[in-house]
C-alpha cells in the first residue's frame, strides 16, 4: 500500500505549503514593517550656522537657487566636516530622493523658511519615482576656497565632503553629463561668505536682524562682479524680517530678508537671481501616519488567505471522498 499512497501525501503537502508559506512570508514582511518604526534615530554630527559664522576659510556656504519658481537664491552656512547631503538636510533644509535611487539622489529641495518648507520641483512637475531627466534636475556645483569658478560635482551629495570655506551650489535646470553646459550664470564670489575669518568662531545666536548686525563684519561687495549685489552688502539687508515658520523653533528667529530685492533699486542684476540668507530654523515636523491602512490591508489579505486555505481543504476532502 505504501507505493500508491505516497503521491497523495506529497500532493497534500504541496497544497498546504503554497498557502502556508505565502502566509508566513506576508506575516514576516508585516512584522518587519511594524517592528521597524519603533527604533531610534542616529544623531547628526554637523550643525547649521547663521551666515555670519561662515568665512572664506571656515564653514561651508550652501546656496540653492529657487529662481526657476520665482524665488530667491538662498544661502546658508554649515560647519565642517560635513557632506553635501548633511548640509542640505539641516537648519530647516530638507530634500527628497527618488523611489528608484533612494535619498542620495536629490530630487526635491525645500527650506522651512521659504514657502513654508514646500519642496521644489513639486510633485506636479516631477514625480520623483524614476531618476529625473538631465534636462530638469538639481545639478550640484562646487567652488573651492579662493576659486571663482564653479566645478560640476563629480560625486554625489552623500559622498562629497566640502572643504572649509568652499561654496556648494544647487541649481535647477539642464546640463550635459560632463557638466560643461548649463553652468550657473553667476560667479561663486557673489554668494561666498566674505566675513573676516577672525570674528566668527563663537557667533552669538541669531538675534533680530542677524544679517544686518553681521553686516558690519562684512567686507565690501565682491570685486569681481560689483553689479551682482548680494544680501551681505549693508544696503541690501535693510528689509530683514522674521519669517519663523514654526512656533517651536529652537532658534529665536528665522531671518530671511525677503524684501531685500525690491527695497534696493538699481542693484538688480540682469543675469543672477537675488540672494537671501536662510538662517537655521527648526525642521518641519512630520507625523508617522496611521497604522489603520496597514491593519485593514492585513485583514483583507488574511481573509483572502483563509478563503484560499478553505478552498484547498475542500478540494482535498472531495478528492478523498469515494
Amino acid at each position: 500500500m505504501r507505493g500508491p499512497r505516497t503521491p497523495i501525501r506529497t500532493a497534500r503537502r504541496g497544497g498546504r505549503s503554497v498557502v502556508g508559506r505565502a502566509t508566513a512570508a506576508l506575516a514576516l514582511a508585516f512584522a518587519a514593517v511594524c517592528g521597524g518604526l519603533t527604533l531610534g534615530a542616529a544623531p547628526a554630527a554637523a550643525t547649521p550656522q547663521p551666515m555670519t559664522a561662515c568665512t572664506t576659510t571656515k564653514g561651508v556656504v550652501l546656496a540653492v537657487d529657487f529662481s526657476r519658481w520665482g524665488g530667491p537664491l538662498l544661502r546658508s552656512c554649515g560647519t565642517t566636516p560635513t557632506t553635501g547631503y548633511t548640509l542640505l538636510n539641516q537648519g530647516g533644509w530638507a530634500t527628497t530622493g527618488t523611489q528608484h535611487d533612494g535619498p542620495a539622489f536629490i530630487c526635491r529641495i525645500g527650506y522651512a523658511g521659504y514657502q513654508n518648507g514646500k519642496q521644489y520641483p513639486t510633485s506636479k512637475d516631477e514625480a520623483c519615482v524614476l531618476t529625473p531627466p538631465a534636462t530638469a534636475y538639481w545639478s550640484y556645483w562646487h567652488a573651492d576656497p579662493g576659486k571663482n569658478t564653479w566645478s560640476y560635482s563629480q560625486l554625489g551629495a552623500m559622498s562629497y565632503h566640502p572643504k572649509p570655506g568652499s561654496v556648494d551650489l544647487w541649481i535647477f535646470g539642464a546640463t550635459n553629463i560632463a557638466g560643461t553646459q548649463g553652468r550657473p550664470t553667476f560667479s561663486p564670489d557673489s554668494v561666498r561668505a566674505h566675513n573676516t575669518p577672525s570674528g566668527g568662531t563663537t557667533t552669538p545666536p541669531a538675534k533680530k536682524g542677524a544679517t544686518t548686525g553681521g553686516a558690519g563684519a562684512h567686507t565690501t561687495a565682491p570685486p569681481v562682479k560689483p553689479t551682482h549685489r548680494a544680501a551681505n552688502t549693508p544696503t541690501a539687508t535693510a528689509g530683514t524680517k522674521s519669517a519663523g515658520p514654526s512656533p517651536t523653533a529652537t532658534t529665536p528667529s528665522a531671518s530671511t530678508s525677503t524684501a531685500a530685492a525690491p527695497a534696493t533699486p538699481g542693484t538688480a542684476s540682469p543675469t543672477g537671481p537675488r540672494t537671501q540668507d536662510a538662517e537655521p530654523t527648526a525642521a518641519a515636523g512630520h507625523s508617522s501616519g496611521s497604522v489603520l491602512p496597514v491593519a485593514i490591508t492585513a485583514a483583507v489579505v488574511a481573509v483572502i488567505a483563509v478563503a484560499a486555505a478553505l478552498r484547498v481543504r475542500r478540494r482535498r476532502n472531495a478528492g478523498h471522498a469515494p
Binding site: 506576508l26 496597514v294 490591508t297 483583507v300 489579505v301 483572502i304 484560499a308 478552498r311 484547498v312
Partner: peptide, 20 residues
C-alpha cells in the same frame, strides 16, 4: 506602484485566483 500594501493585495489576489 511601490506601495507595499497594494503589492501585498496583488499577491493575495494572485494566490487566491490560482488556488481557485
Amino acid at each position: 506602484t511601490t506601495n507595499p500594501l497594494l503589492l501585498f493585495l496583488v499577491l493575495a489576489v494572485l494566490g487566491y485566483v490560482v488556488t481557485e
